[in-house]
């Protein structure tokens, strides 16, 4: 089990998640001529979130291609490019705009290696900005990770720190399997001390990390909910709770080993994510933890998630998103001895 605490200072040289992702794309394009980016507005504009800023200018329009506005066509075209030996990186403009590409993803991208007995792997990275909290209007704030994590053949990863933004994206592009790379869009502009000159070595996909050690209970989370959980853990000290926080980083494959060890260490667990709870990733995590840690648990595994409602209008989203108070309420319900 590794421990790493993200530094969240705003010191000189601090880097945003957005620029670390841009750097990861630039380094991948530079090192591997088979890497090609394609998507809506990724060329001249640099993407609506500027994650591909400057890449078309540096590597040419072919390497960073502005496509027609058609997500199934974008991903389907990427499949053909991958069949011919390229390593496409697709940008879906927003979470809810990726749904037209769902059939290509589920019926072909996820299955081609299996369908062809390993002869035709598709090393495609599908980048999707996801999650709410940015005041976005409808269709701009979905958390769609459960759809993808449910699909065999896909890896689903999501960074929550600047360093992981770089490292996981490099790993995703280098992977010979298709990777759905979910970018927590509300963390795009969060900064950390992170040196682009000496990026950390790229870790293999599939390992969770303990962001905060604790003894009372374990918060299990990922992506946009990590900062919220870390804040909750700080606030919990006033209640006398010492909370551990696990950042999954990879939803598929799932790091049972790290998660189970972190739960056994405290005997109590709360899963936190933005997306709706019903049939969500948290349900899977709660089941896996119960199956593996039953005799170590002092209380049922609880979930703090978005409500089971369509994503609300931005002026109401603060009521939907898991916040510090809701997390602490859940911790308080973990059957503490009086």
């Amino acid at each position: 089990m590794t421990t790493a605490t993200p530094s969240r200072t705003r010191a000189a040289g601090a880097t945003t998640l957005a620029s670390a992702l841009n750097r990861a794309l630039r380094d991948s394009l530079r090192e591997d001529p088979s890497v090609h980016i394609l998507g809506e507005d990724v060329g001249t504009l640099g993407g609506v979130f500027r994650i591909t800023d400057g890449l078309a200018a540096e590597f040419g329009a072919d390497r960073c291609l502005d496509t027609p506005l058609a997500e199934a066509g974008i991903l389907g075209t990427a499949v053909g490019m991958a069949m011919y030996g390229l390593r496409p990186v697709v940008e879906m403009q927003f979470d809810a705009f990726a749904y037209p590409a769902f059939e290509q993803l589920v019926s072909h991208v996820a299955r081609m290696r299996n369908r062809t007995a390993g002869r035709m792997p598709l090393p495609i990275t599908v980048r999707i900005p996801y999650g709410g909290g940015i005041g976005g209007v409808e269709h701009h704030s979905d958390s769609s990770e459960a759809y993808y994590a449910h699909t065999p053949g896909l890896h689903v990863v999501t960074p929550a720190t600047v360093a992981d933004g770089y490292g996981l994206l490099r790993a995703a592009i280098a992977s010979d399997d298709p990777v759905v790379f979910l970018e927590p869009k509300r963390l795009y502009w969060s900064k950390e001390d992170w040196s682009a000159e000496a990026p950390a070595p790229v870790e293999p996909i599939g390992r969770a990390v303990v962001r905060r050690r604790g003894t009372s209970a374990t918060l299990i989370t990922y992506g946009p909910s990590l900062p919220v959980c870390l804040e909750a853990a700080e606030a919990a000290k006033a209640e006398g709770w010492d909370l551990a926080v696990v950042d999954l980083r990879s939803l598929a494959p799932f790091d049972d080993e790290t998660v189970a060890a972190a739960v056994r260490a405290t005997g109590r667990a709360v899963v936190v994510h933005e997306s709706s709870g019903f049939a969500g990733v948290g349900a899977e995590i709660a089941a896996r933890v119960s199956e593996r840690c039953f005799h170590h648990l002092a209380a049922p595994v609880l979930r703090v998630t978005g409500f089971d409602i369509p994503y609300p209008p931005p002026m109401l989203e603060q009521h939907h998103l898991p916040g510090v108070d809701r997390i602490l309420d859940a911790v308080g319900r973990l059957q503490w001895e009086q």
């Binding site: 991903l75 389907g76 075209t77 990427a78 053909g80 069949m83 011919y84 390229l86 290509q104 019926s107």
Partner: peptide
Amino acid sequence: TQAPHAVGLAHAA
């Protein structure tokens, strides 16, 4: 669904 694959492969070639 294979039609865009043909386009992508032809484009790559």
